[in-house]
């Protein structure tokens, strides 16, 4: 399934790019992410907890940066397993940054394969969960950028 969306940050494109690539800082803005560790400069291991009503998923997996075109385009691959739900997510995450007059527009495309039991839960739920996470991510990033600027 394909999930697409965008959000706008009030910061120049370069600043946004730098924040995006500061994986440790950035990952704090993804709701549910924990225990992030660096494998090498391009890959990271972490855990992600998602809760939709009574259904809880705890994914453990890796993020690998596949393509970096500073400060415009970033492609990452995510492979994560949830043992309890016998499920797996394999996703390609593409993010495109665009300079606006008063900030930066971040457009993202997630091409995800959900496998196993959670797959029948449906696109509608996945889509909405991803969008909520992106919105939360956007506002968290804005806060960090604002805090960074004032600091």
């Amino acid at each position: 399934m394909k999930i697409e969306g965008s959000f706008t940050l009030e910061a120049p494109i370069r600043t946004v790019w730098d924040y995006l690539l500061n994986i440790e800082e950035m990952s704090q803005c993804i709701p549910g992410v924990s225990a992030l560790e660096t494998i090498d400069t391009k890959s990271y291991r972490g855990e992600l907890q998602i809760k939709v009503g009574p259904i809880k998923a705890a994914f453990g997996g890796t993020v690998t940066l596949l393509e970096l075109e500073p400060p415009h385009r970033l492609v990452a691959e995510i492979v994560a397993d949830d043992r309890r739900n016998a499920s797996q997510v394999k996703a390609t995450f593409t993010s495109i940054l665009k300079s606006l007059a008063d900030g930066t527009e971040v457009t993202y495309t997630i091409d995800a394969n959900v496998r196993g039991r959670l797959a029948q839960f449906g696109q509608a739920v996945a889509q909405s969960t991803a969008k909520k996470m992106a919105a939360a991510f956007g506002s968290c990033m804005q806060e960090k950028i604002d805090a960074g600027e004032t600091a």
Binding site: M1, K90, N113, V114, R115, G116, A119, Q120, G122, Q123
Partner: peptide
Amino acid sequence: IDGGQITNPNLSD
């Protein structure tokens, strides 16, 4: 089917 995964393997969907 999404990426080889059947997403409606029940008689409700």
